Amino acid sequence: SGIWPLLSVILLPDNLKVIGTILATLWALFLTGWLSAWAGRAPIIPAILRNIFTGVLTMAFTYWLGTLFK
């Protein structure tokens, strides 16, 4: 699942890298949530939402932490 954000960083032009990487990461979070629910025969929507929520929260915290060390 990490291939999508990596490809966005490698392939997108500089002016689209940030938004493209965010969107690619959201796509990867969606896919891993769906696949984990499917593999575990669990409800799919809660797994996807939980994965996206924790991923976005983690990205926001990491971004905030990075701003402290500029």
Rank of each mutant, 00 (worst) to 15 (best):
I22G: 13
T58M: 06
T58V: 07
W34R: 05
S8I: 08
I22N: 11
L6K: 01
V9M: 15
I3F: 14
A28G: 05
K17A: 14
I45W: 01
A37F: 09
I3D: 04
P5W: 08
L6T: 07
I52D: 02
Y63P: 05
W4K: 06
G2L: 15
I19K: 12
S8K: 02
T58H: 02
N15G: 01
L29I: 02
G66H: 06
A42H: 12
F30K: 00
G20P: 08
R50T: 10
A28P: 04
A39S: 11
T25L: 05
T54I: 10
G20Y: 11
L29H: 02
K17L: 15
I52C: 03
N15T: 07
W34M: 03
L6W: 09
G40L: 09
I52P: 01
G2W: 11
A37L: 06
P5F: 13
I45P: 01
W38T: 13
M59R: 01
G33E: 06
A42R: 13
F53W: 02
I48A: 00
D14N: 11
W4F: 12
N51A: 08
L68M: 14
F69H: 04
I22V: 15
P46L: 02
T67C: 05
T62A: 14
W38R: 12
A60G: 06
N15R: 13
G33A: 03
I45T: 04
V56S: 06
D14Q: 11
R50Y: 08
V18P: 05
L12Q: 03
A42I: 12
I52A: 03
P13Y: 09
V18F: 12
F53Q: 11
I22M: 13
L68E: 11
G55P: 00
D14H: 06
T21C: 15
G33P: 00
N15H: 12
F53H: 01
P5I: 12
N15K: 04
S1M: 14
